[in-house]
């Protein structure tokens, strides 16, 4: 029994900035439901006293000497964008002006 609903698919897509085309929410709901249902078998594993693992290296607090290193020039960093202005990236408007 899955707990993913049709409206969840649309909500998740909005959160992830994905625009779904007509028919896609239904298609993805069917496919994702099957995968999430499969995950149910994890409930069989007893994990009450198990610590979670997020990485396998065991490395902690990795540092290097605080020396200036060579890095990308501003020109190189901007080179892959076709929308630049005065050496800045042009980004879409987030807050729009409103009359109060």
């Amino acid at each position: 029994m899955t707990i993913l609903s049709g409206s969840d698919v649309k909500h998740i897509a909005t959160l992830a900035s994905l625009k779904l085309k007509k028919g896609e929410p239904e298609k993805f709901w069917t496919q994702l439901t099957k995968v999430i249902d499969y995950f149910e078998e994890l409930k069989e594993v007893e994990t009450n006293i198990t610590e979670p693992t997020s990485q396998t290296t065991g490395l902690q607090n990795v540092t290097r000497d605080d020396n200036v290193q060579s890095c990308l020039s501003q020109q190189d960093a901007l080179s892959s964008s076709d929308k630049t202005y005065n050496n800045y990236f042009v980004v879409p408007i987030v807050l729009e002006e409103k009359d109060f």
Partner: peptide
Amino acid sequence: MLGSYVLSAGYYDAYYLKAMKVRTK
């Protein structure tokens, strides 16, 4: 979408945290 779902509030413990624990096993 699947990744956003397993990380989202309400499902994080049931999926992502559980998976990290089984990874330990």
